[in-house]
Design a protein around this nucleic acid. Structure first.
Lengths: 205, 205
DNA sequence: CCATACATACGTACCGGTCAGTAACATTGT
DNA sequence: ACAATGTTACTGACCGGTACGTATGTATGG
C-alpha cells in the first residue's frame, strides 16, 4: 500500500514493448516461484538468477524479501477480485448465481495439474507471525472476502446470513486446500454442488 | 511407516519417570515448534537447544530433519484418529451425530488463541513437492479421512454420499485454515452448524 | 555544438549469520 | 563391557542484505 514499486515512464510510447524493467521481471519471476514452491522455499538468489538480474537490483525496487512477498500478494489480491467480480457481473442482482458461478470456476481451477491452492492462504500458513508483511495482505483479503460473502448471503434472504456466508467461506478455503492436497479427482471438484446444497438448506425457512 | 524412531525399553518400570530419553525430548520439542511456527521456520539448532540435547543426539535418533518432521506428523496422525474415534465411539450407530460431535470439538479448538490449524494440512502447504516425507504422511492421513467421511455419509443414507462426504471434508479443511487465519470469532466457529445444514440438505430427497 | 553534471539503472564482490549434517572423542550409567 | 549421550569443532552451501564502482541517457550551461 505505501509504495509503488514501478513508476510509469512519463513518455508513454511503445505500449507492447517486451523490454520490461528489472522490477517487473523480478516480480514476475517471484510470483511464479513463490506460488509454485512457497515463499520460504525460494531464496532471493534464485529469483534474481531466473529473472536475469542481480541482487542489488532487487533491493533497489523492494526493501526486503518480505516486502517482495507482500507485493506478490498484492498483485494476487487484485487478480483475485477481478475473477470474483467477473462472476458477480455475470449475474447482476442474483447473488446465488454469482456465488455458484464463482465456485464453479474455483472447482475447475483446483483440478488443474499445477494447482497449488490460494497464494493468500498458503502465505498465511507459511507466516503465522502476526504483523508479517505477507500475512497482513492475506488477512485483509480474507476479511474482505468474508464481508462480501456474508453480504451476499443476506441479499439471498438467508435467515442466518452470517452463518451461511461463513459456511461458504469454509467451503472455499476447503477447496483451495483440498485442491493442492488431493489433485485431480479430489473433493474440491464438488465445491459448487455442496455450496448449492448449503444455500438451499439455508434459504428454506 | 517404515521405521519407528523410538524403541520402547524392555524393562518396563518407572511409569511416570520424568527422565525421558533424548529422542523423546527432541520429538516433543520438535512437535511443539513445528506446529506453532512451521517446519521450515525452525532449524535443528533451535530444536536441540530447547530440548537440552546436542545435534549428534538428534541425528542418532532421526536420519534427517525431514524424517523428524515426518515422525512429528505420524504422532499427530495417531492423536488425530484418537480424537476422531472418541467422537465416533460417543455415538455408536449414529454417523450423523458422530460427525457433528467431531465438528463441534473442531469448532471449539479453532477458537483457542494458540490455534494454528491442522499440522498435516500446514505441512502439505509447506512442502508441495511430491514424495517429501512430511507430505507423504499428510496425504495418507487426508486420503483416509476422506474415505471415512464418505463411508459415514453413505451410512447416513445420503443419495449422493460421495458428494456429502467430500462436502464435509471441505468444511473441515476450511475450518482448519480459517481458524488460524481469523482467530477468535472467525468462520470456523460455525463449522458444526453448517455441516448440519449440509447433511440435512443432502438427506432430503 | 559540445562538455559537464546529474540521476537512474546495473554489476562485482563481499558481509556475517544460519542452514543441515558430520567426524572424532570424552563421559556417563547400568 | 557396552550402549547412550555429551563435547567440540567443523563442513560447504545458502541465507538475506549491502558497500562500492560503473555504464547510460538526458538536461543544462557555455
Amino acid at each position: 500500500m505505501p509504495s509503488d514499486n514501478k513508476i510509469e515512464a512519463s513518455t508513454n510510447e511503445a505500449p507492447a514493448a517486451p523490454a520490461r524493467k528489472a522490477a517487473d521481471k523480478i516480480l514476475g519471476v517471484a510470483r511464479d516461484l513463490f506460488y509454485r514452491e512457497g515463499i520460504r522455499a525460494i531464496g532471493v538468489d534464485e529469483i534474481v538468477k531466473r529473472a536475469g538480474v542481480t541482487k542489488p537490483s532487487l533491493y533497489r525496487s523492494f526493501p526486503s524479501k518480505d516486502e517482495l512477498a507482500a507485493s506478490y500478494l498484492r498483485q494476487y489480491d487484485r487478480e483475485f477480485w477481478e475473477r470474483f467480480d467477473q462472476a458477480v457481473d455475470a449475474h447482476p442482482g442474483d447473488p446465488r448465481a454469482q456465488i455458484i458461478a464463482f465456485l464453479t470456476r474455483v472447482g475447475r481451477r483446483t483440478q488443474r495439474p499445477d494447482y497449488r491452492g490460494c497464494g493468500m492462504t498458503n502465505a498465511a500458513v507459511e507466516y503465522p507471525e502476526h504483523g508479517h508483511p505477507a500475512r497482513v495482505v492475506s488477512e485483509a483479503n480474507k476479511q474482505e472476502l468474508r464481508r462480501r460473502l456474508r453480504a451476499m448471503a443476506a441479499a439471498m434472504g438467508a435467515a442466518d446470513s452470517d452463518t451461511l456466508g461463513d459456511g461458504l467461506l469454509l467451503l472455499i478455503e476447503g477447496a483451495y486446500i483440498s485442491g493442492q492436497l488431493f489433485g485431480l479427482g479430489g473433493p474440491a471438484a464438488s465445491v459448487a454442488r455442496n455450496a448449492d446444497l448449503l444455500i438451499e438448506a439455508s434459504l428454506k425457512k
